[in-house]
Design a protein around this nucleic acid. Structure first.
Lengths: 205, 205
DNA sequence: AAAAAGTCTTAACCTACATCAATGAAACAG
DNA sequence: CTGTTTCATTGATGTAGGTTAAGACTTTTT
């Protein structure tokens, strides 16, 4: 399906063009550097203990990045939908084992690049270097907010913030994974939602 | 005190030379780009609501970065000792209000640079660009670990991890700020330490 | 040297969320 | 279509850490 993959590459080019200007030649270089990788539901880009060999741009579908602790509990670090990135920066760059798992939530498609290809691409398009520096900074800022939110407010406030920031998330992700993202157990989220609903009906009567 | 400031600049140069190679001319450029800024105990590099105009390298003393929430509770995000950096990357780069405070824990000294000077320095020493990209990545990795630690283990495990990673911290920082860093109240840390001590004596008898 | 401000500890009580256990419903595989 | 995981809900009970309040001890300010 040539036209499908063409559309995927266009998403990536559009994404970059929102952050910098590219010549036609540069666009071609980008297209030939990123490869299409399809990942079926519940399968992985990489898992804990493996090296993250690819950095991926989500062209179709969705992913979760999570960490499994020593009590075998999963903790969702991020969700990634279309036009977002997945990967473990530290593992990708240092070529060391990752502590994370990146799993498809549905049959999905990524545009992936490995480290040598990325370095080559940076050399031919220096402006991209800055684009990725900014992406990393943004990433850091988001995580800082998340961390502060986690230590300074309760699960209900975190839930409200999530719904406000990402209103469709409940349609896209099972509830126990939202709970994990919020840092609570599914039982607690279920109870919490019941409480919220009860309060809502009381108010409106 | 010329010799004092000379020693401060040497710390910064040594720091950079661990990550890249520099010519004498580049070292001179670095020295003339960073300015010395002394900050007395309890005073600030910047506060919540202000723009972080300087990125600082701690040449003497120590700092805490914290956030004050809507209930007026302080949450320590980082400590910074000698040879560490302070600042708010997002605020510094985007020139927007910061949500953080950077406060000296004792009379301290920074080598600071503002955004125009940093951009100019990057132009004259492109290798530094990569150094800072790596610093930001490292920063992100550290924060990710911290976040996962916070959601996947209890305060005692976090305390033990901190002591192991930074054994002298209890001599350098008041206990209520360590509590804040751990995400608990000073009373809880005090109680926790008592429990630990009780267990220790039981074991050794 | 006195006053004020900051720090640490202890104790009694409270609450948000975890844990354990059971159930029904939905999704999925053979 | 049917047995089997997976998912959501609910209830009973447990606990880490929060809240409030008080006292002692130390450091800083005047």
């Amino acid at each position: 399906m040539k036209s499908d993959s063409e559309a995927s590459y266009l998403k990536l080019i559009d994404y970059f063009e929102k952050k910098t200007t590219l010549t036609e030649g540069e666009k071609t270089a980008i297209k030939s550097s990123y490869k299409i990788k399809k990942i079926k539901k519940k399968e992985y880009l990489f898992q804990q203990g493996e090296i993250c060999k690819y950095e991926g741009f989500v062209s179709q579908g969705s992913f979760r990045t999570y960490y499994t602790d020593d009590k075998d509990l999963e903790h969702v670090l991020y969700f990634a939908f279309e036009n977002w990135w997945v990967g473990d920066i530290a593992s990708f760059n240092e070529e060391e084992a990752s502590g994370q798992n990146v799993q498809a939530l549905q049959d999905s498609e990524l545009l992936v690049i490995d480290k040598p290809a990325k370095e080559k691409l940076f050399k031919s398009i220096p402006a991209l270097e800055k684009v990725f520096r900014v992406i990393t900074q943004k990433h850091l800022t988001v995580l800082q907010k998340r961390f502060l939110m986690t230590v300074s407010s309760n699960a209900e406030a975190r839930f409200n913030e999530l719904i406000q920031r990402c209103p469709t998330i409940e349609q896209m992700v099972p509830q126990h994974q939202i709970a994990s993202y919020l840092g609570i157990l599914p039982e607690s989220l279920s109870r919490m939602k019941k409480q919220i609903a009860k309060r809502e009906t009381h108010k409106s009567n």
